[in-house]
Amino acid sequence: MVEVLRPGTLAEALAFRKETAALPFAGGTDVMVRERGYTGTGPRIDRPVLFLDAVGELRSITLGDFAAGAILSIGAAATLTEIVNDERVPEPLRESCRLIAAPGLRNRATMAGNICNASPAGDSIPPLYVLDARVVLAREGEVRTVPIAEFLTGPGRTTLRDDEIMIAIQVPLDGDAAGDGAASADDVSAGASDEGSAAAGGSAASNGSTTSDGKTPRTVRYYRKVGTRRANALSKLSGAGIARIDGRGVVTDFRLALGAVGPVVVRVPAAERLVAGQRASEIEPEPIVAAYTPHIRPITDQRSTAEYRSHVARNLVREFISRIQET
């Protein structure tokens, strides 16, 4: 019988983790499947297990004001259901969580687990890249904050140390992002599109506020998950984007992240800079697609082929640009 602990406080959790290098277990929806035993038996876990679901400090979603702006801190034990139900969570992150699995799984699964599992197909990860999110890692006597792109180093690989646990995910809410986060669900044209069985869901949302000169700066938020079913589908690939367009129709900020097209999520700063500064209506998609192409290097596995993923990933670039141009 393995040693387990389900503490109520972070201090107890950190002490146990340091002492035993226990497996951190939040919702368990990945661990229980990965370590599954025969029918009628429990999971085959041969190391101590640290249950995090009862740690009060890790359960909340809180808004903080920092010098750099407002930051939403999502506790590592907050469930996906809690995240989806929280209107402060900015798009496209909230939408990506809404499309993960199904209600019963979202009631247990956590975003921290989705990150630490470090699957190239983890659905919350591309949105975290475009939101420039950071993860907060703690061990006894030390807390460090790491950009999401530095935390994830490859399939199943992270920079989490043996005595650390993830305690929160920090999502910056700059001015209009906070506005979007607080906007009603009506702003998101959510749900699956019917472009064949391969499209599991897509959405774009935009909002803006009128400036003194009467023009309306706007933010376009994009998310598309490509999978075989609307529910319980592991993604073949996914894309998340944010673009800001100023009152003159010029794109001032363009961010796009592609999931499951390489060992880690792909963002291409050079391609993003190509778009920034252009008038939205005048963007030529193909040079942008070409800038992404060398970075789209997927593999063939049981869910999809490299060829399909490459083809559709380039289509996601085109789709995001067309969303910028149509709104």
Binding site: G28, M32, G104, N107
Partner: peptide, 19 residues
């Protein structure tokens, strides 16, 4: 295997005794 735990729908095949 769906059951309701603490008011929430869950898959009982994924919930260990400790929780």
């Amino acid at each position: 295997c769906s059951v309701i735990v603490e008011g929430k729908l869950v898959n009982s095949c994924l919930v260990p005794a400790t929780q």
